[in-house]
Design a binder for these strands. Structure first.
Lengths: 230, 230
DNA sequence: TCCGCTACTTGAACATGTTCAAAAGTCGGT
DNA sequence: ACCGACTTTTGAACATGTTCAAGTAGCGGA
């Protein structure tokens, strides 16, 4: 259970401003972890980082933007962690399970204040919403992971379903994240159980698409998804 | 497209305190609608209602609690609106579609600031979360509606699935709400399309459970749901 | 060296949700 | 009418996210 150290965040800092920027971010993340998001004040972050409040706002236009930066950092870690899994595993279930569990691991240190973070998930106007235009790059990078999960696996799927599936798996991850946020079981037992049991289920569901009676429904589902994407 | 009037909220006000309570609530809801949640200050609510700020807090311990009260009010309206539909329709699709559309109608006047409201959906600690202990009564009342949707319909289902289905339909509604919050299409065209197309799909999926190859997966799904509920 | 431009930094001021000690009102009992 | 207990009301004070006008530092060019 490796925990991200502060210096992990500070990488390739070059100019003067960049150093201050990273210093503020790493200080903020440390305080978030230590005392939670709500109890960490901007004044505390600034003081602890040895800068003025206004200076913190010069680099991060709001407290939520510090979260956004953290989120990006998290995703980078996840992308990295996923590589070895995708290289090693060849069938769908372990690939998907591994990817989800990897997310769980990199996010674990932040579980306590994650609620405050994902609070914004439902707020359409916030740039932090996973559905927003601003988070499109991060979202697409995330969807790309699931595309690789499928492409590198042994699944045989109808073309149209295969095209939509990465986004659906991403959506599934969003659901699991929502569950995780509410999960207060010891060692995240319940979330782990959810992952370990739901992925094989998805696998079975996907293989069901070969049954003739099912095919029609699948087509309709794909059609529905396509129609509401615009 | 009937819009809730302020006096709809104020009903059966009796004692002195109750009157003030309702006055504050109705004023708050009016301002929320007129200027949005974020731009409505507690001072504005108090001033407009002709009371002091502290007095508003005497009745509602936070701004969010004013939302909670609104939410309860909304649910009451929904329950009422649903009666005629459940009395008239006898098959699943129109029953379910009607219930969802009724929700859309009573909620329509608040669509603009709904984002701020459902923001709390993902925050585990907030009593406003639909999954929280505090909102259990409201949630159960809502689930009950879906139980009636099923019980009064022509659906023939395996007993164990039938037992879990009301909660699943409630979850489906949560998903639709999330979609609705992000829907900025004219006249909520896209959300309406989502309802009208997804309900028949659910209907078809449910009838698929008769196919032998599907039965096993359904059992597993039901098992998974049951196991993660604890 | 000095000028001017940009990047950076500051901290006081502001906006707003929330708290709280004190005041005012209400009401039943004597 | 007065007392005491409880409910209701008040507004100033507080906490904290955010803004902004002003100041400082660094740096390339004359």
């Amino acid at each position: 259970m490796e925990v991200t150290t502060l210096t992990d965040v500070t990488e390739s800092a070059t100019s003067k401003g960049e150093q201050t920027r990273e210093l503020i971010l790493s200080t903020a993340l440390r305080l978030f972890r230590q005392q939670g998001y709500g109890k960490t004040t901007m004044r505390a972050i600034a003081t602890e980082a040895g800068v003025s409040v206004g200076n913190a706002y010069y680099y991060y236009s709001s407290k939520e933007h510090l979260m956004q930066a953290y989120y990006d950092h998290l995703q980078d870690q996840h992308r990295e962690a996923v590589e070895s899994i995708l290289a090693a595993e060849k069938s769908f279930v372990p690939r998907m399970t591994g990817v989800l569990r990897a997310w769980l691991e990199v996010s674990a240190p932040y579980h306590e204040f994650a609620g405050t973070f994902f609070k914004t998930a439902a707020e359409p106007k916030s740039p932090l919403s996973p559905f927003s235009e601003q988070s499109r790059p991060a979202r697409e990078a995330s969807v790309e992971i699931f595309r690789r999960v499928i492409d590198g696996s042994d699944l045989k799927l109808p073309a149209d379903l295969k095209a939509e599936l990465p986004e659906l798996l991403w959506l599934m991850q969003m659901g699991i994240v929502l569950f995780w946020v509410h999960d207060d079981s010891a060692d995240l037992r319940r979330t782990k159980a959810l992952i370990d049991r739901s992925v094989p289920l998805v696998d079975r569901l996907l293989r069901l698409t070969r049954i003739p009676g099912v095919r029609g429904v699948v087509n309709d589902i794909v059609g529905l998804i396509r129609s509401i994407k615009r």
